[in-house]
């Protein structure tokens, strides 16, 4: 059984039919990428899975449990973490406060400390700046903070929305290396990304979304060599 299984998901924004029968699944330990152009429905898919938007039809099964109707805040204790698009950090709080809020749903103080040390190990820059106000961090640092905050909830699956958005190529490489490391240490990753080349280079499998439909899916390496994909998304 897949860790996360989405079946025939439909979402409407008023009259607009944003997602049409989107189905995909994520196995334990994988990196799965959802790629596609602007407005294809990538973020909508992610927000529906994390409970921020309500689906009009379809089902979301997480760890053999139907979570379609569950509100977003109840998914976090189940081990699903969400790194929202556009580096949404708590701008008026310090780095440390941001990270501690990431562990909001956890009670055991010793374990939280341990997670904090792990996050600091992974992002040494966050340790240096732990008392700095998050809004004054650079874009890359804010992305690291958003990821670190998600890791503080000790997730089994982490859903990342456009981690490369607005970052310089060097930072994009750094962020993707970190995503790979996070995955290696045992966390499943669902990645939504416009930067198809980067996403396919680290993913195991990928789904291509176009105007609210899954039009193609398969092994990431194969998709990378797919003529259609190369033309439409890799600019070759």
């Amino acid at each position: 059984m897949a860790l996360l299984e989405v079946k025939d998901l439909n979402v409407h924004y008023g009259m607009i039919h944003a997602l049409k029968d989107v189905s995909f699944h994520v196995e334990k330990g994988e990196i799965v990428a959802l790629i596609g152009a602007n407005g294809a429905g990538k973020t909508t898919t992610l927000h529906t899975v994390t409970g921020l938007i309500e689906a009009s039809a379809g089902s979301i099964i997480y760890k053999d449990q139907d979570v379609t109707k569950l509100p977003g805040h109840k998914l976090v204790p189940l081990g699903m973490a969400h790194v929202p698009e556009g580096r949404r950090v708590f701008a008026d709080m310090t780095v440390l406060q941001n990270l501690k809020l990431g562990a909001y749903t956890r009670k055991n103080k010793a374990e939280i400390e341990e997670s904090l040390e792990n996050v600091y190990k992974r992002f040494p820059r966050l340790k240096e700046r732990k008392n700095q106000v998050a809004g004054t961090l650079s874009g890359g640092e804010q992305q690291m903070l958003a990821m670190g905050r998600a890791l503080m909830s000790k997730p089994e699956i982490i859903l990342m929305d456009e981690p490369s958005m607005g970052l310089s190529p060097i930072l994009v490489n750094e962020i993707f290396d970190i995503i790979k490391e996070v995955n290696k240490s045992g966390t499943t990753v669902l990645l939504v990304e416009q930067n198809a080349r980067k996403a396919l280079s680290i993913a195991d499998r990928a789904y291509v979304l176009e105007t609210g439909r899954v039009v193609l899916d398969g092994d990431a390496k194969e998709l990378m060599n797919n003529e259609q994909i190369r033309k439409a998304y890799l600019g070759e």
């Binding site: 805040h73 708590f90 701008a91 709080m93």
Partner: peptide, 24 residues
Amino acid sequence: SRDGRAIMSIRDNRIAAESTGINV
């Protein structure tokens, strides 16, 4: 308090608050 930090996190960023497990 912990509740207060949750309240301020909603002010700072609603979506991020919800995605850290806070009942907004």
